[in-house]
Design a protein around this nucleic acid. Structure first.
Length: 136
DNA sequence: GCCAACGTTGGC
DNA sequence: GCCAACGTTGGC
């Protein structure tokens, strides 16, 4: 089972808003590589939600509620979106600084490719982030 | 098909 | 506010 990380600008759409709404359409992704990742998501897979901009931290875990389908917010029918449902909030947010300071996460795409908005996480990377979230 | 110019994202 | 990294566009 794959795990993912999706970025959002909290002023545009935040983890807190997802918790309130319980479920949302994750649309607006306009990057070819991110699109490939969206297409690979399967229902039930976990997606860490990361805030860029002011917060720069992972806040919670969502689950894929609906796999990729045409993004109605795009003119070009090739862009896709998924539906995500809030699953659980991390015990504490994991900041980008902590992620960068953690040797196990040195090569994760969040660090390596700061402009990618939807990316896969390896099992080890997920473990490392969750460990940081519970104070480890 | 190459590459310079430009736009955007996102960290600092 | 700045700039590096990256993607896209358009002239050739």
């Amino acid at each position: 089972m794959a795990t993912w990380l999706a970025k959002t600008e909290p002023t545009t759409y935040s983890w807190q808003k997802l918790v309130k709404q319980k479920r949302t359409r994750w649309d607006g992704v306009r990057n070819a590589q991110a699109r490939i990742n969206l297409l690979a998501m399967k229902v039930g897979e976990q997606v860490l939600i990361y805030h860029s901009g002011e917060d720069k931290a992972v806040f919670g875990i969502a689950k894929v509620a609906k796999s990729a389908y045409r993004d109605p917010s795009a003119d070009d029918p090739r862009w896709v979106c998924v539906d995500l449902a809030a699953e659980k909030e991390l015990p504490s947010p994991v900041s980008l600084a902590k992620i960068k300071a953690e040797p196990a996460l040195k090569n994760c795409l969040l660090v390596k490719n700061s402009r990618l908005s939807v990316m896969p996480l390896s099992a080890d990377e997920l473990r490392a982030i969750l460990a940081l979230a519970s104070g480890g």
